[in-house]
Design a protein around this nucleic acid. Structure first.
Length: 413
RNA sequence: GUGAUUGUAGCUCAGUUGGUUAGAGCGUCUGGUUGUGGUCCAGAAAGUCGCGGGUUCGAAUCCCGUCUUUCACCCCA
């Protein structure tokens, strides 16, 4: 801490026990949930050609424009993945027909060069899924249900699912024109940023955090009202399908998702415990163009760091998932140490966690360590026991101990 | 990129208007006679005061830079 020689890079942290136990639980349960929805894991490289991200995310997005870790070691400019969809699509597109009807999930670190703050790291971790296939409201609803199942499996409560739609690509122009026309009379009430946004990216005015802007937005029709009947019907079908599955959602026409490739359904899951970055998960239907090819599908991503903040707020901590403390072996004298090494190996081969002091230390010191390890039982051996072929087993909570045969211990372990 | 904020032992923090060998609590280690932890008692180890410059007779303390922490904008998971 005092020396930056041993400090990790800004916005990148070492994850250690006990927090790591929470990560392990989440990863394990995520795999189980995805498996139950018949998704298979796909591991793509962290490093890709820069162009993979540029074409998928669109090279006007902030993520690509200014948040990418990129470098050019040789011919190609490379980049660390800032999210998981682009690499997945690169992979699926290469699988031809099969890739257009696939269900995969990914889990791992992502990198974005941003200023760290609550719920925002430069190396962060996501778990996400992609289900490719032509637009289908049921597929969107199932993806939302899957995401809900995942959060339930983690024990996360108090999150809120907000759903909206971006409509079809052909709706974009009417929506933008409609909103612009509706906002124009209120131009002077909008903040400076929004006065600029109204021309550059009207949708951004809708989710501006400024109070005055929100007042204006509340007065004008929502983006959805400028969309085609077909687009609105699509959203209705998604909502009905979710009702049918018993998944509670709120329709929020003000929900805006940044990436360009979204069409139709978009959603976000927020949690009040998170601070300014309150979205712990987000997803939507997309149409991702990869040069001459284009892949339709639906997917979502959940941020581990943010989900953990929310879990902590629910009283769920890493300690609760710590492995069993197992046994501690205390050795008195050199021959006991040798014998205990042998015993530990045997117990460990049965999957039992065994700790022991490998240096010649006093019994007091060894007992102190045993106590700190949290072991429920301590096995004590000295010359006497070795000669008799027994071990002393001490119950740390009770403070009692009994002498039993070595074979018995190994058999019952 | 913008605006704030933080940095003193392993951890949590004191450190008075710049003045000798920088402190506390917790933790760690060692003891309190033969092989017994968690309580108690005694002792010990442990700090380039984030780093680099500057001002000064003298800087943890003032100034500048830099890195880092945390938060917000922005953006997003």
């Amino acid at each position: 801490m005092a020396n930056n020689e041993f400090q990790s890079l800004q916005g990148m942290s070492d994850i250690q026990a006990p927090e790591i136990f929470l990560w392990q639980m989440m990863e394990e349960r995520a795999r189980a949930v995805f498996n139950s929805y018949s998704y298979d894991e796909l591991r793509t490289p962290i490093l890709e050609k820069l162009s993979v991200f540029q074409r998928s995310l669109g090279d006007t997005t902030d993520v690509v424009k200014k948040e990418m870790y990129s470098f050019k070691p040789s011919k190609h400019e490379l980049a660390m993945r800032p999210e998981g969809t682009a690499g997945t699509m690169r992979h699926l597109a290469g699988r031809g027909e099969e890739g257009l009807n696939a269900r995969v999930f990914y889990i791992g670190p992502m990198f974005r060069y941003e200023r760290p703050q609550a719920g925002r790291k430069r190396q962060f971790h996501q778990v996400g899924v992609e289900a490719t296939g032509e637009p289908n409201p049921l597929a969107d609803a199932e993806a939302i249900a899957l995401q809900k199942s995942l959060l339930d499996a983690w024990g996360l409560t108090g999150s809120k699912i907000q759903v909206s739609t971006r409509g079809e690509p052909s709706d974009r122009q009417p929506v933008a024109d409609g909103l612009r026309a509706a906002l124009q009379p209120h131009l002077s009430d909008l903040c400076d940023d929004c006065q600029r946004r109204i021309d550059e990216n009207v949708l951004r005015v809708i989710d501006c955090k400024n109070e005055n802007c929100q007042k204006v937005v509340d007065q004008v029709p929502s983006a959805i009202e400028f969309m085609s009947d077909a687009s609105r019907a699509y959203l209705d079908q998604v909502i009905h399908a979710l009702e049918n599955m018993g998944v509670e959602v709120t329709v929020n026409p003000k929900l805006i998702r940044g990436l360009d490739y979204y069409v139709h359904t978009v959603w976000e899951i927020s949690h009040s415990a998170l601070g300014a970055q309150d979205a712990l998960a987000g997803g939507g239907r997309y149409e991702i163009s990869l040069g001459k090819k284009s892949v339709p599908g639906v997917g979502f991503a959940v941020g581990f760091e943010r989900a953990i903040m929310a879990l902590n707020a629910c009283g769920i901590e890493g300690e609760q998932f710590a492995p069993d403390c197992g046994l501690w072996l205390v050795s008195l004298g050199e021959s006991a140490l040798t014998e205990n090494m042998k015993l530990a190996a045997e117990l460990r081969s049965k999957g039992i966690r065994c700790g022991m002091e490998l240096a010649a230390k006093s019994m007091k010191a060894q007992m102190r360590k045993a106590n700190r390890s949290g072991a429920a039982k301590v096995i004590i051996r000295g010359d006497e026991e070795i000669e008799k072929g027994t071990v002393m087993v001490k119950d740390m909570a009770e403070g009692t101990q009994e002498e039993i045969n070595l074979e018995e211990l190994i058999r019952d372990a």
